[in-house]
Design a protein around this nucleic acid. Structure first.
Lengths: 218, 218
DNA sequence: ACCTGAACACCGTTCAAGT
DNA sequence: ACCTGAACACCGTTCAAGT
């Protein structure tokens, strides 16, 4: 009768859909994102979404690009030392993904044609080449940073272990006696592993830089 | 009638279900694994699966443990040099996951109570501690290897870029001019990045070992 | 242009019924 | 014990109908 069918002002926009979808995925996981549930959250009926996106995957694509757009690539600009740039980029990259762990599997399928993903790849690859890395090596560096960041954001290492001592019978797993304690130190363990690994990776790479001296041990 | 209801010999077994599920996931992805589809592949009706697993997630759990069981941890045994052990473990770990990329997101949720996952964690942690690493550092090493391996198996870096030059407009992405070529060198790029990253990581770690001299530049 | 409800071919899971 | 079909509450997506 009155508020039905088409209102004078659109109820939806791509932006509102993406924002709500990201909030839903963050709060309840990828499985909770159904078109019907998302539509309900937006106060419309399910099929309405198809006026703004051709497919549910299209929505996820836009969500993924929003997340990548949060990554700060400014430190990769020409002129900065490559180690400093790489460290800052990787930390920002991880922070962005760790804030939205549930879309990481989707995100890790690569930039494809998503603008924020391509902008990041352009900045990272360009930054490494400008710092003197041969293109093939610059590509590998971008790839290994993606591996490390995506892997660390995909799921907590520490929370992978159950918070229950009886799960780790010393007869079966003699060296996992403390494993049940990992869960409660989740953040410390995961961030420590990422940070230690990142610094080790950069030191190891420094040994391979065309104009390298010895790596700094800090 | 004749072949209906319960046959004298069970039609299904946990093992047959897991094997078929893994084959289906490998061939068509996680989304193709529905209980109805899996049951059809096994020649039974959907609900039959619930006589052997309490839930679809339980099936995936068993599939994940099967994949981890393929990882060779023998090089982590006490007595081997920790670098050699770590490299061999990480390579075997990556090979196992890369053979079944579609279950990596599920796998990366950690070992939980899965026996093969726990056996691997026990061997890796124990191996690093036996090699002189303090327990906290050994934990971090296990975590960072998981990050790197899972991230690299989760999705190809190279195939993340579309095989279409027009996707990467030089005006928008000035340094991605060759990006469309990545797809065709997918395996070389991804394996090169993993191998380079792994060696860099180990060299970087060697600088931090309690009894370390300088890292070898291989 | 942008929303609606109805409809289609799917899901995971439960359950009573068969042997 | 182990399989079946029917049923329940869901899915993603299409489409004709409304304004």
């Amino acid at each position: 009768m009155c508020g039905m069918a088409r209102p004078r002002k659109p109820l939806l926009s791509r932006e509102r859909i993406v924002t709500t979808a990201l909030a839903l995925v963050d709060a309840e996981g990828l499985a909770a994102l159904s078109t019907r549930r998302l539509a309900a959250e937006l106060g419309v009926s399910g099929p309405s979404l198809y006026n703004h996106f051709t497919t549910k995957d299209g929505i996820l694509d836009a969500v993924a690009d929003t997340v990548i757009a949060e990554v700060d690539v400014s430190a990769l600009a020409t002129g900065t030392d490559w180690r400093t740039g790489l460290l800052a980029w990787a930390r920002s990259y991880r922070a962005a993904l760790a804030a939205h762990p549930h879309i990481v599997p989707f995100l890790a399928q690569g930039p494809g044609r998503r603008p924020a993903g391509l902008k990041m790849a352009d900045a990272a690859f360009g930054g490494m080449v400008a710092a003197g890395w041969p293109p093939a090596q610059a590509t590998r560096i971008c790839a290994m940073v993606r591996y490390f960041v995506a892997g660390s954001a995909l799921g907590s290492f520490a929370r992978g272990f159950v918070d229950d001592p009886s799960a780790y019978d010393p007869a079966d797993y003699p060296r996992l006696g403390q494993a049940h304690l990992l869960a409660e130190h989740q953040q410390r363990v995961d961030e420590g592993a990422f940070e230690t690994g990142l610094l080790a990776l950069v030191d190891g790479l420094a040994l391979r830089h065309p104009e390298s001296g010895p790596a700094p041990h800090r």
